[in-house]
Simulated assay, not measured.
Amino acid sequence: MIGVDIVVVERIETSMKKYGEKFLGRYLHPEEIELVKKSETAAGFWAAKEAIAKALGTGIGAHLAFHDIRISKDAKGAPSFTLSPRIARRHSILSTSLSIAHDGGFAIAVAAIERSTPSDEMQ
C-alpha cells in the first residue's frame, strides 16, 4: 500500500510560532521533536504521518493516532518509521519505507507499507 501527502510549510510554521512546542507535541513524540530544527522538518513529519495513515487505509482518527507513528532518521538522515505494536499487529506489517522532501514552500511524503495477506499468514 502507498500513501502520499503534501503540506504547505507556512501552515505548520504559523502553528509553531503561535503554539510552540505544545503544537508539535500534539503530533510528535519527544524524540521526534528533538529532530525538528526548522519548520520544513516539522511539515515533512506531518506529511509523513498523514501519508502513513493513508497507506494503512485508516487516516488519522479513531483507529490511528499521530502518536501511533514514530519517525526517526538514520545516520545519513534518511527517514523511517515504526508503528505502535497494536497498530503493527492489527495491520500485519511486514516492511515499511518512507521518503520526505521539501521545496518551494511545500513538504511532501510518500510511505510504502507491505502487509501480509491471509495466504501469507497461513504459510
Rank of each mutant, 00 (worst) to 15 (best):
108 I>W: 00
76 K>N: 12
89 R>K: 06
80 S>G: 14
40 E>G: 15
45 F>W: 02
14 T>F: 09
68 D>T: 11
4 V>M: 11
32 E>F: 01
81 F>G: 02
122 M>A: 11
17 K>H: 15
76 K>R: 11
34 E>L: 13
92 S>T: 15
8 V>T: 05
120 D>Y: 09
112 A>Q: 06
15 S>E: 11
37 K>I: 02
104 G>W: 07
15 S>D: 03
89 R>S: 13
13 E>P: 05
111 A>S: 06
90 R>C: 01
78 A>M: 10
104 G>S: 14
100 I>Q: 15
82 T>P: 06
32 E>I: 06
47 A>T: 04
100 I>P: 13
99 S>H: 03
105 G>M: 04
50 E>T: 09
98 L>H: 02
6 I>D: 01
25 G>N: 06
91 H>R: 03
15 S>N: 14
116 S>G: 08
102 H>R: 15
64 L>C: 02
78 A>G: 07
29 H>L: 08
122 M>F: 02
63 H>N: 14
49 K>F: 04
33 I>E: 01
86 R>H: 12
95 S>H: 12
17 K>I: 05
91 H>T: 05
122 M>D: 06
16 M>G: 02
72 S>E: 13
4 V>C: 08
98 L>E: 01
18 K>Q: 13
53 A>N: 03
24 L>C: 04
117 T>W: 00
36 V>W: 06
82 T>E: 14
46 W>M: 10
81 F>V: 12
57 G>I: 12
13 E>V: 00
70 R>A: 14
98 L>Y: 08
108 I>D: 02
29 H>Q: 00
62 A>P: 04
113 I>R: 03
88 A>I: 10
90 R>F: 08
40 E>H: 14
44 G>E: 04
110 V>Q: 07
46 W>D: 00
67 H>Q: 03
75 A>H: 10
70 R>E: 15
11 R>A: 05
101 A>D: 15
41 T>P: 00
